[in-house]
């Protein structure tokens, strides 16, 4: 379990390029670093549910990213807070 405050990186992975899939990690976060805000609970992996594959139960986290790191054209103190499954996170 990842503790609140843990820095994490979203995997720089593109399953979209490898055939049919269902991904709940938005493209604009791939490869970016954020901080775990809290553990939201454990849920069956929607990437498996979408294809009726045997499902794994995965920890789900709220992860915060400064918007300035995501886009080149940023002004203001903006952040993005996103639900991400542990399978998409790696140590930063």
């Amino acid at each position: 379990m990842l503790a609140s405050g843990t820095p994490v990186r979203v995997k720089l992975d593109w399953p979209e390029t490898r055939g049919p899939c269902h991904i709940r990690t938005p493209h604009y976060l791939r490869g970016h670093q954020g901080v775990v805000v809290r553990h939201l609970g454990d849920f069956p992996n929607p990437e498996a549910l979408a294809f009726r594959r045997p499902e794994q139960i995965l920890p789900l986290y709220h992860v915060r990213f400064p918007m300035a790191g995501l886009w080149p054209d940023q002004h203001g103190n903006n952040t993005v807070l996103v639900e991400l499954y542990e399978s998409w996170l790696e140590a930063a």
Partner: peptide, 13 residues
């Protein structure tokens, strides 16, 4: 001077 947090509902909540 106010922070803006955008919450992208991607998953189970």
């Amino acid at each position: 001077d106010m922070k803006l947090e955008v919450v992208d509902s991607t998953a189970d909540y």
